[in-house]
Amino acid sequence: MNTPVKENDGNGNLMSDQTNNARPSSLSDVSANRERNKVGGTAPLGTGLEARGVHAWFDKHHALSDVSLDFSAGTVTALIGPSGCGKSTFIRTLNRMHEFIPKTSMAGQVLLDGKDIYEPGIDVTKIRLQIGMVFQKPNPFPSMTIGENVLSGIKLAQLKVDNHDELLEECLTRAGLWNEVKDRLGAHAGGLSGGQQQRLCIARALAVKPKVLLMDEPCSALDPGSTLRIEETISQLSKSMTIVIVTHNMQQAARVSDYTAFFLSDGGPGQMIEVGPTTEIFSRPRDERTENYVTGRFG
């Protein structure tokens, strides 16, 4: 990451302190825990996610044309572009949420660790467990408590977890919410602020230990303060997982991402114009249209 976040240390310490309390043991145990905390207890990173020649349609409307993008493991990729350029559609093809809308279709391949997630006969619920998603509008389950929300994915997928409390604390800590809610895990999620709800949704997505986290404009409904907290969270998470974030906010793309892909629609289906390291896209883009967009001449 380009900007080290101050909170890193605090969280790491908090985690190992906690484990100390829970299981008073030898020093080596604690350091082993610290070691594990470095990768945040997620599944191994794998080789990342890869889109090959992805097209998408809504009924007969061709919304996205021939996008090939490589998201290597442990990187943050920002998808930018004006409204209607197909970036949200694209991100939804990456965990098969696109097909959830009736009468949609897609072409091409999306490879997770080299395996096509659209392969016939594949269990789509298993795919979504590995590729988590955070939505534009915070959407916690209002009938559940804060704690239940975080663990809802575990319950929905009927995963086995040894220690629920540990997982709960880990996910909330990684989402940067633990300190704010640790005393009211039994309260209903509806009572949280918008920013807190969004971080709760991130914690919820983390609980099933995905390899990839897709974020579809996660901050667009939030105030600047909450946005900052979530950007810190993203920086934190990027060490242990692959993140793809759609954003309308170019400063945000510049702040959080390693790579940036610029999408544009010239009236026809949306296309990916250019992709590269974020610093290059923002300082010396190859395509004139990218330059016009990132310098604020349109969009």
């Binding site: 965990n95 949420m97 959830f100 619920t125 298993k126 795919i127 979504r128 467990l129 988590g132 998603m133 939505f135 509008k137 959407n139 916690p140 389950f141 209002p142 809802s152 994915g153 929905l156 997928a157 949704c201 919820r204 997505a205 099933v208």
Partner: peptide, 16 residues
């Protein structure tokens, strides 16, 4: 959005 949240967490239809 709640329906999508459940699906995105790997829920089956019945689970959702």
């Amino acid at each position: 959005d709640r329906v999508q949240a459940a699906y995105a967490l790997g829920a089956t239809k019945w689970g959702m």
